[in-house]
Design a protein around this nucleic acid. Sequence first.
DNA 1: CCAGACGTTGTT
DNA 2: GTCTGG
DNA 3: CCAGACGTTGTT
DNA 4: GTCTGG
Length: 260
Amino acid sequence: MCGRYTVKTKDKKLAAQFQASLLESFDNHFNIAPTFRVPVVLMDTEKNERVLKRDYWGLVPYWAKNPKIAYQTTNARADTVSEKPSFKRAFKKTRCLIIMDGFFEWERSVTPKQPYYISMKDEQPFACAGLYETWKVRWEEDKRDIEKAEKTGKKPKAVKWPINLGGKNYNEGEELESCSIITTEPNPLMAKIHDRMPVIIDPKNYEVWLDPKMHDEGVLKTLLKPYTDTKMQCWPVSQVVNKVGDDDTENCIKEVKVQS
DNA sequence: CCAGACGTTGTT
DNA sequence: GTCTGG
DNA sequence: CCAGACGTTGTT
DNA sequence: GTCTGG
């Protein structure tokens, strides 16, 4: 869950709201999908300040041979995030906030499946609990693995190089920073349409979540709870246009309708 | 997450 | 890198 | 010990 | 069914 969302808010406004330095400007977008380079807030440990930058959506662990794994690491389950090999290091050391102003969810118990748009009642941007990792392109190692596979008569996994990820080419030795959104069980509002929801972090807990020195799993896990449903709203996308009526939302809805 | 492709040969 | 399965 | 996976969602 | 691209 949480595989599509919007960032309608301008980058400068987001930087101000989350008290972060804008490292890289970006355009707002109404239908963000995995593999996009999405805005995240994290701590720059050298300068000891929050930065707003863009990471590839789909976490590629630092040990990965092939970034393909990213297709299945757009989300991380809150209940197992501290144990899974793909996430445990990031959970301990490199947490981030993934910024959005609403997300889509498809109710599948009806035909055709019904898309909903979920946001805060005050329509303000909010932050989901995220993890990030840095991965380095190691084509030379891959080549050795392919040779090995050929010798043992197995089908080698073809790796294209340079690798294009999130609209950028990555060559040997280049680094990719990627991220994942943590999910949890739904609150009463979300439970009507789906059995998972993204973890939304309360602003008063941003500091703790982002602190690289915070290693207390117990404390961190208490933050991974379903967000207060009374602060949220959930509308079928066909009704969001009528309700909000602004151009941005309308564009967003059109795009979703075309694609669903 | 969803939408859309998914294949080869030879000829233009 | 680290864990699981054999 | 080595080899192979390492993930989530939803759907069957 | 399963993978890729967005």
